[in-house]
Every structure is written in structure tokens, then in C-alpha cells.
């Protein structure tokens, strides 16, 4: 037992302390957080635009007067559906590599490329989550808003979206947790994120135990912290219910 403890201490020292190896993890963590944060923002932005177009089309297909506006909306809707099909139909690693090796082959800003890839990927999922939220709100709410004289956009912003947001919060949180962990494939384009940092240490020390467990523990703590934040928000939003 004594012996085992001594050997573990030595391995811990070798993997995380010696030559400041913990810095691979710290630097990697910063990259992971940066990529996740901006990808989430981009994903929400894309998701909002795509969900608005798709939901508006769904809701007004029957009632909108034919004309140029309706034609534009139909085209945008088609474009959104094409985007959803392609993004959801291919693995995120492949999308990341296509971005890095093909689309942005001339650039070497790996963080930016990762943000764009993961953001565009996440946007597709966020869009469908948001659309499901909008469609989950009873048509009577829209009718009540419109019957007061509010226009379509005002009804959406003041009446439908606040209620939809509350309903989709768990699904949205889920998507962001997935995204945080999905960025661990950034190593495929040699971006040194948290996972890659652990991998580099393993390559130096030929010891997989501490680097991998440390990486796993950091992801776990991040996700637990984030889940806690979301639960606070949920409790706040649930105020209007009994």
C-alpha cells in the first residue's frame, strides 16, 4: 500500500507538476472555454434566425397573402431546411476538417475556425429546439396578442418567445453541454484544447492515467457548474407558476 502511494505520487508529479506540465491543461482549458463560449453565442444567433424563419413560415403558410413577401419567406425557409439537412446529416468532426482543410485552408487561425465550425453546427440544433418551443405555445396566445392589436413581431417578442424560452431551457442547456464536450475533437485540426493538452502530456510521459482522468474531471466540473447555473435560471423563470 505504502509502495503504491509512493508510486502514485511520483506519477502525479511526473504528469502534472514536472516541467510545468499542468500548463498544457490550463492553456487547453482556456481554448476550450473560448471556443465553447463564442460557438454558443454564434449558435444562438443562427438558431434564432433560422427558427424565426421556419416558425414564421409554418405559422403563416395558410394565412399570408400571396406576393413577393411570401415568395421570399418560402425561399428562406427552403434555405434553412437545406442548412439543417446538411449540418445535422454530417459529423461535426468532418465539418471541422472541411472548414480547416478546405474552406479556410488559407487561414491558420484555428480558434476562429473552431468557433465558426462548432457555432454553425450548434445553430442547427438550437434552431430546431427553438422552433419546437415556439410551436409548443398555444395558438390562443398568438390570437390574444393579435386581437389586442399587437403585430406579428410584437406578439412574438412579448408573448410567445418569453414563454417558449422557459419551455426550451432544459433542452437548450443540454445542447450547450453537448457542445462543450464536442469541442474535444478540436485536436483533429491540431487545435490545443483541453483534450489535446492531456494528450500531449500522455505523449511526453507515456502515462495515460493522470492526464486522461484530469481532463475528464475538468469537463465534469465545468458541466456540473453550468448545470447549476441553469437550474438557478429555471427556478427564477418558474416564478409565475404555482
Amino acid at each position: 500500500m505504502q509502495e503504491w502511494m509512493t508510486s502514485m505520487k511520483a506519477r502525479f508529479f511526473l504528469n502534472l507538476v514536472k516541467d510545468n506540465r499542468w500548463k498544457y491543461l490550463a492553456d487547453g482549458l482556456v481554448v476550450t472555454l473560448k471556443v465553447t463560449f463564442f460557438a454558443v453565442l454564434l449558435g444562438i444567433l443562427i438558431g434564432m434566425v433560422v427558427a424565426s424563419i421556419r416558425a414564421t413560415r409554418d405559422k403563416t403558410k395558410e394565412t399570408m397573402r400571396p406576393g413577393i413577401g411570401k415568395a421570399i419567406l418560402a425561399f428562406l425557409d427552403w434555405l434553412c431546411r437545406a442548412y439543417l439537412t446538411v449540418i445535422r446529416g454530417t459529423p461535426v468532426v468532418v465539418q471541422l476538417m472541411i472548414s480547416y482543410y478546405l474552406i479556410f485552408a488559407s487561414s491558420n487561425n484555428k480558434v476562429l475556425i473552431a468557433i465558426l465550425s462548432f457555432g454553425i453546427n450548434s445553430g442547427a440544433y438550437v434552431a430546431e429546439i427553438m422552433r419546437s418551443g415556439i410551436m409548443s405555445i398555444d395558438e390562443g396566445q398568438t390570437e390574444a396578442g393579435r386581437s389586442l392589436g399587437l403585430n406579428y413581431v410584437q406578439t412574438m417578442v412579448f408573448i410567445v418567445l418569453p414563454q417558449a424560452f422557459k419551455n426550451i431551457l432544459p433542452a437548450l442547456a443540454n445542447e450547450f453541454i453537448v457542445l462543450l464536450k464536442e469541442t474535444s475533437v478540436s485536436g483533429y485540426v491540431a487545435l490545443q484544447d483541453l483534450t489535446k493538452g492531456g494528450d500531449i502530456i500522455r505523449g511526453r510521459t507515456y502515462d495515460a492515467f493522470f492526464p486522461l482522468l484530469a481532463v475528464a474531471a475538468i469537463y465534469l466540473v465545468l458541466v456540473m457548474f453550468f448545470s447549476w447555473l441553469v437550474s438557478l435560471l429555471e427556478r427564477r423563470l418558474r416564478k409565475s407558476e404555482r
Binding site: Q141, A144, S147, Q163, K166, S240, E241
Partner: peptide, 26 residues
């Protein structure tokens, strides 16, 4: 008719629904 501002028209007509349709978040 296309010329009528439907939102202005609706402001002059109050409507009460079978299922109340109050805004639950307000």
C-alpha cells in the same frame, strides 16, 4: 382589403376567448 391596417382595426375590437388566453408569464 389590402389597404386596411389590420392591427389598427383590431385595436377597436376587443375580443374575449373561450379559454381566456391570458398571458401566463405576466
Amino acid at each position: 382589403s389590402k389597404k386596411t391596417n389590420i392591427n389598427l382595426h383590431r385595436q377597436k375590437m376587443g375580443m374575449v376567448f373561450q379559454h381566456f388566453n391570458l398571458f401566463p408569464h405576466m
